[in-house]
Simulated scan of single mutants.
Amino acid sequence: MRRAITAIRNRLDRFGIILSGLCAVHCVLGVVLVGVLGLGGEVLLSPEIHRIGLAMAVGIGAASLGFGVLRHGRIAPLAIGGVGLALMALALFVGHGVPEAVLTIMGVGLVAYAHIRNLHAAC
């Protein structure tokens, strides 16, 4: 039973890393496609995508990083992930464009790093 729970926690961290990467790709493609080519603005820059992505990041981050603290007792991954999530949330309020992309990419980078630290701390 304990192995099954550990496997689920590890999958959540790995999914968090993948989700962070997808978010970064979305930001870069959004800025390039909309800013340079003028394509896909309605879809790529939709506020709904950003709100849903942030909600998923908060849910997965809280579950996997929070469980990580309970498992290995190290709070650093949770704190790093929290700062990353705060940057992602702040990006929702700066408007579309480069500042939003920079804040989001910094945030998802920190969240991904937190998930990686969480996985390593569990070993």
Rank of each mutant, 00 (worst) to 15 (best):
16 G>M: 03
93 F>H: 12
83 V>K: 00
83 V>D: 00
11 R>H: 03
41 G>Y: 00
109 G>H: 10
96 H>F: 15
1 M>F: 10
119 L>Q: 12
117 R>D: 09
40 G>A: 13
81 G>Q: 00
97 G>K: 13
17 I>Y: 06
69 V>C: 01
111 V>M: 07
72 H>L: 07
59 G>V: 15
73 G>P: 09
13 D>H: 10
59 G>S: 12
83 V>E: 00
97 G>V: 14
71 R>P: 00
7 A>C: 02
45 L>R: 05
74 R>H: 06
40 G>W: 12
14 R>M: 09
4 A>H: 02
74 R>F: 03
112 A>V: 07
9 R>C: 02
61 G>C: 04
74 R>S: 03
48 E>F: 04
1 M>Q: 06
51 R>V: 15
120 H>N: 06
16 G>N: 02
94 V>F: 14
95 G>C: 15
37 L>F: 15
121 A>T: 03
63 A>I: 13
123 C>W: 11
35 G>Q: 07
92 L>D: 04
92 L>Q: 13
83 V>H: 00
56 M>I: 11
4 A>Y: 04
80 I>N: 01
46 S>P: 02
83 V>Q: 00
97 G>R: 14
113 Y>I: 07
94 V>N: 12
5 I>M: 04
18 I>F: 14
12 L>R: 00
47 P>R: 05
54 L>W: 05
9 R>T: 05
11 R>T: 07
5 I>H: 06
94 V>K: 11
61 G>M: 02
53 G>V: 03
67 F>K: 03
123 C>Q: 13
91 A>I: 06
106 M>A: 05
77 P>G: 01
36 V>T: 14
94 V>M: 15
26 H>E: 05
87 L>P: 06
10 N>T: 04
117 R>V: 08
87 L>V: 12
53 G>F: 02
94 V>D: 10
101 A>H: 02
61 G>S: 03
118 N>S: 15
18 I>K: 02
31 V>S: 11
16 G>E: 00
1 M>W: 10
54 L>H: 05
108 V>Y: 12
16 G>S: 03
29 L>G: 14
